[in-house]
Amino acid sequence: MPLLEVKNLNLSVLTGNDLLPVVRDVSFRVDENQTLGIVGESGCGKSLTSLAIMGLLGGTPISMTSGSIVFSGQELTSLTNKERRSIMGNQIAMIFQEPMTSLNPVYRVGDQIIESLRKHRQMTKTKAKKRAIELLDLVKIPEPENRVESYPHQLSGGQRQRVMIAMALACDPKLLIADEPTTALDVTVQDEVLALIRDLQQRLGTALILISHDLGVIANTCDYVAVMYRGKIVEAAPTADLFSNVNHPYTHGLLNSIPVIDRDIEWLKAIPGRVPTINEKLAGCAFNPRCNIAENICTTCDPEQITLHDDHYVRCHFAKRGTND
């Protein structure tokens, strides 16, 4: 049984009187101890998907129009807000992009971890503090006994993100969702934080959903990758399989767009055009205006999801033919 199974998730945003779809028919599963990477450009719906899982769409103009989210055999969408909150932060925890804004600047970092422990685990204050120090030690913050007394502004960006990870791990969640956890960090710090996430994930056996725009980050951290474009998963496969057997022209284009540091490329093969805004209505495959292999069928008919082989799924009319130049 998968730990988390998202089926046909559809999200729409209300602008004016229009309900515009922003996430369409997204389905994926995460097994225990597995790492799923969701990659895509800004506005592709990857962050909204994670917010939907966390039940954090209330108060936004975005609503879930259909779909199901099953976590450990429990349908999350049918729970009351209160029941959902007890799962959030407890069994599913989240790490956000900007560690400065997601930590409350007026409380000591220790107190913020202690508060969450006392709320979800009903621990005594001394016990919770001991656990907070353990957690800071776990995320490799030096001198955790002193650091629990620090305020967020006294820590560096990398340390703040470590604190966020410690907070997320406070209640031994079964699933951790990390939304661009290292985007705001420098590469050297990013490397350390990613190493930490990989290490913890292996030691604690927590399942992880890592959301990023950076294919490099995903490739180095995840077992399974889902590529999103304009609200849809266009290609999903185990990491090694995805990179050795690219099928969707968007994935292909994305890989060609990245300037690599290992060799010289005279001109990058950029994807032409631009990312369509949510207001634009596109018939057929959403990628067809930018696709180099698009034919008539692509402008009229939206491709269904095709299974290539075990666990490699593509949404492209020409999937089996391949697109390699």
Binding site: L194, A219, F243, S244, L255, V260
Partner: peptide, 14 residues
């Protein structure tokens, strides 16, 4: 250190 920190895409396979 900088060069070593860049997450590389397994382009070899790709």
């Amino acid at each position: 250190l900088l060069l070593g920190s860049i997450p590389r895409i397994p382009m070899g396979i790709y």
